[in-house]
Nucleic acid binder design. Structure first.
Lengths: 171, 171
DNA sequence: ATTTGACAGTTCATTTTTAGAACTGTAAGG
DNA sequence: CCTTACAGTTCTAAAAATGAACTGTCAAAT
């Protein structure tokens, strides 16, 4: 499967993965949320090759996750700023951090703590139901096809079963 | 940067990305949450090459995200089941789906709807503060170093600024 | 007036990953 | 026996990432 096919899939998760589902893109986005805005900033913070960085930034701009805004004329220079679409990735970032905090820390403890300005406390992010406010558990959620589903409802991604797929040589 | 270096970073997000931060791993995990358990199931659902599938499953087992459990003797066959560590990835999955639902749907609407068994309603996942229950906004969260931080607190990942890094040839 | 350095990329050769397809092996079913 | 299901492994070709150097504009320092 190629990257762009992913974005065509009738599955919101596959489409999201098509946009941000690779390690460098995710790390670049982390930097964005840590207020990095410029090419050199990303490069030195991450150690990513400039080649890839340029490519990933271009893609994020194309996807509307970042906006490229001039911050000086001559030589023309730009900053990369999160759009609303980009800011909306925040729950994903927090979910990633929280899983790492829970399952990937060493004896020293968490590398970062998060403080919620509203209540002033160090917190963990919790995923709740928009309707009843209860924390979400996988077991308590049922999935069913929505208006954008494809005909066969049980298969949301590629259905390679449709292919003849001879598994031993026919000769 | 190599994959395994990522897991050593003093950053929970980097460590998480080291485990699940590639497109196929994420899609495999989606299948797990959709109750796929067997090699052929993953392969035909995703169209992933068997080679990569085998490798990714092995890695997920090694990381403790999946458990490989025999479901028949002779020939010995195994299923891949989410561990608690794996189940804890659920908020990440939901966050990915929700972003796609918000920003990547076409005119037809969402491919899937989620129903919360507890309240019986179709819902969206919302990230809230564990302390006050308010929805989290990036602007309202402040980050500061925790016990597992490295000396220089403002740089959480690789600090390539330390290198001499001559940018034009010295000759 | 020339050199140096910051910044934001681009180019290119090498290495690593991934894709695609076929092959192995066990066992059941017709 | 022959075919099929299942769970991999092996191999080659194609695609992507790495590493390092190169381009170009301009400001400040020498």
């Amino acid at each position: 499967m190629k990257w762009d096919e992913l974005e065509e899939e009738p599955c919101s998760m596959a489409r999201t993965i098509g946009v941000i589902g690779d390690r460098w893109t995710l790390l670049i986005l982390r930097e964005c949320f840590l207020r990095t805005r410029r090419f050199e900033g990303f490069q030195s913070a991450l150690g990513i090759t400039r080649h890839l960085l340029a490519e990933r930034l271009k893609k994020l701009v194309r996807q509307g996750v970042l906006r490229r805004i001039p911050y000086q004329e001559s030589p023309k220079r730009h900053e990369y700023i999160l759009t609303q679409k980009g800011l909306d990735l925040y729950p994903i970032m927090m979910a990633l951090v929280h899983w790492g905090d829970t399952h990937m820390v060493d004896e020293r403890g968490r590398p970062l703590l998060h403080e919620h300005r509203k209540c002033g406390k160090t917190f963990d992010p919790v995923m709740v139901c928009s309707e009843c406010g209860e924390p979400l558990l996988a077991k308590e959620v049922h999935v069913h096809p929505g208006p954008g589903a494809r005909p066969a409802p049980e298969r949301v991604l590629l259905d390679k079963k449709a292919k003849p797929k001879p598994r031993r040589k026919a000769a």
